[in-house]
Amino acid sequence: MLEKYNDSSFVQHNRNLPDKVTGLVGFLKEFVEDYPDYTYDIKHIYVDGNYVIFHSHATLKKEDRGNDKKGMNIVDTWRLENGRIVEHWDSIQALDDFMRLYSLINGGDIKNNNGVF
């Protein structure tokens, strides 16, 4: 399935992730291995033409799930063409001191040159 949906037209605007669907999948695979209790709870989904927007609450620790003072507030915006994801943006707000520190430590590697907009 990954071969069907992976192509060079996927543009990633999260500066810490490489382009292409394989870049996103590779990141998520390693991330979940490092944080097996990671949760990504979608709170709202909005659709506007070719854009799909998820507003979500993510946590790294099982005991933080559902606690809106812990984890991250995330807005993911996906642009689709012909049923395929071709572009992704996100905005992430750390909700507690642990996540602010995590973001500071892990937010420095730039993996693409696409810009955030």
Rank of each mutant, 00 (worst) to 15 (best):
K29M: 15
H88C: 02
G71W: 01
L28S: 14
L101D: 11
I53L: 05
V32I: 07
S91P: 00
E81R: 08
D64L: 14
G71I: 04
D109E: 13
K70Y: 12
V25T: 12
L95D: 12
N67F: 14
D48G: 12
G49T: 06
N50C: 05
R15T: 04
W78Y: 13
K62M: 10
Y35E: 07
E87W: 00
T59H: 10
V116W: 01
L17N: 10
I105C: 05
E33L: 12
D64M: 14
K69V: 14
K20Y: 08
L17V: 14
E87R: 01
N14I: 04
N67T: 15
E63Y: 05
K61E: 15
H13P: 05
N114T: 04
Y40N: 08
V32Q: 03
F54K: 01
R65F: 02
V52Y: 00
F117P: 00
N16P: 03
G49R: 07
Y35Q: 10
M72R: 14
V52A: 09
I105N: 07
R84E: 09
N114I: 03
R15I: 06
D68C: 06
E87G: 02
E81H: 04
N16H: 13
Y51I: 08
F54N: 07
V52M: 05
F31D: 05
L60M: 13
D41S: 09
R15H: 08
Y35T: 09
V11S: 01
I92V: 10
G83Y: 06
N82G: 11
K62E: 14
Y51G: 00
V11C: 01
V116C: 00
N82V: 03
L24A: 08
G107R: 03
E81A: 08
V11I: 11
V86W: 01
L24H: 05
T39W: 03
I92K: 02
K29F: 14
K111D: 00
N14E: 03
G108H: 11
G107L: 03
V75E: 00
K43W: 01
L28T: 15
Y35N: 13
T77C: 06
F98V: 08
E81T: 05
M1V: 11
T59I: 12
W89N: 01
G108N: 12
F10G: 07
P36W: 06
